[in-house]
């Protein structure tokens, strides 16, 4: 509604007042001047009122425009967030869930940095995987391998492992970073996980044989506890969150020397889990690749390594040089 319509009554009052001044009805000059001054003030007041009303309308208009603009911006932001969320969900598949969480919660920076920590490390490998799957079609092999890795990964995550990497059919995980339940509990979780994996593997044998594998799958597992360097390695453009150190190499060697469907654990791991599992002493293993013999001795507990196996078998060997779980 135009302002002259809103102020029609006031305009009418002013017009009447103006007519009164011009009619010369004020005999007293002082009264006339006083009345004219009042009319002038009334005019001014009316102008101010109109001005304030226009200003108020303009401000409201601007506020509405800003609100709409903000709403559109919010919609765009929500859409972008959705896209980012979907993208980050896809990217998260390439990371261990713990690493993903620690990056996305801001607990960890994405930069080349590392720390020394005492972790329990796990290596597993399918015995004679290449020979076992040699005659399988590529698609069947892919299905089989993915099924195997999925099953093992589920067990690893259930036990709180950080999955470092898959190397073909080999799996490397560790416990104690980025989250730790304490060195002892980390070691126990790792051994429990290994036992659960062997158990599940046996359940899956039938399925895999039906898929075309000529022989049942068997695993070798090595577990070791010790200080490693953990963090982001690589370049600023491409980095891996992983662990390095002699203890890691030693674990790989333990896995190599483990018996079929057996778990070979280092001395420090043994010390942390011995009251929970049955073990049997195994003869010492020397790790050739390590440059510093002293470090090897410390990492391996000087002389002893331990062989572990599913406790459900209730086996407890008494041989002098190895321990069976």
């Amino acid at each position: 509604m135009p302002s002259h319509d809103l102020f029609g009554a006031e305009e009418q009052t002013l017009a009447s007042a103006q007519e009164l001044i011009e009619s010369g009805r004020f005999a007293d000059l002082a009264d006339g001047k006083l009345y004219a001054a009042l009319v002038k003030d009334y005019q001014k007041l009316l102008r101010a009122t109109r001005r304030l009303m226009r200003l108020s309308d303009r401000n409201e208009e601007q506020l509405n425009a800003l609100t709409q603009e903000q709403r559109r911006a919010n919609e765009i932001i929500a859409e972008k967030n959705k896209e980012l969320e979907s993208l980050s969900k896809k990217l998260s598949k390439y990371l261990s869930p713990q690493i993903y969480q620690s990056i996305f919660t801001g607990a960890q920076n994405v930069e080349i940095t590392s720390n020394r920590k005492k972790l329990t490390i796990f290596f597993s490998d399918v015995v004679n995987f290449t020979e076992t799957t040699d005659k399988m079609e590529s698609e069947d092999l892919t299905n089989l391998l993915n099924r195997y890795l999925t099953e093992m990964t589920n067990i690893a995550l259930e036990h709180g492992a950080t999955i470092d990497k898959y190397i073909g059919d080999a799996i490397m995980v560790f416990f104690g970073d980025p989250e730790s339940r304490g060195v002892k509990e980390d070691a126990r979780c790792c051994v429990r996980m290994a036992i659960a994996m062997l158990k599940r593997l046996r359940e899956l044998q039938t399925e895999w044989l039906e898929l075309g594998a000529e022989q049942p799958f068997h695993l070798r597992i090595g577990i070791n506890t010790g200080y490693v360097t953990v963090g982001n390695f690589g370049s600023n453009d491409r980095m891996d969150y992983t662990i390095i150190g002699s203890c890691v190499n030693a674990t790989a060697r333990l896995e190599f020397h483990a018996e079929t469907d057996g778990i070979l654990i280092g001395h420090e791991t043994y010390a942390l889990v011995k009251d929970e599992v049955n073990t049997e002493e195994h003869e010492p293993i020397k790790v050739k690749a390590l440059p510093n013999p002293c470090a090897v001795t410390r990492c391996w507990g000087c002389t002893t390594t331990w062989l572990a196996r599913d406790p459900s078998s209730a086996r407890s060997r008494t041989a002098s040089s190895c321990y069976w779980i």
Partner: peptide
Amino acid sequence: IYLNSSSAKAVM
């Protein structure tokens, strides 16, 4: 850069 009604009255 902005005036509300009260400020407009104060400016007057």
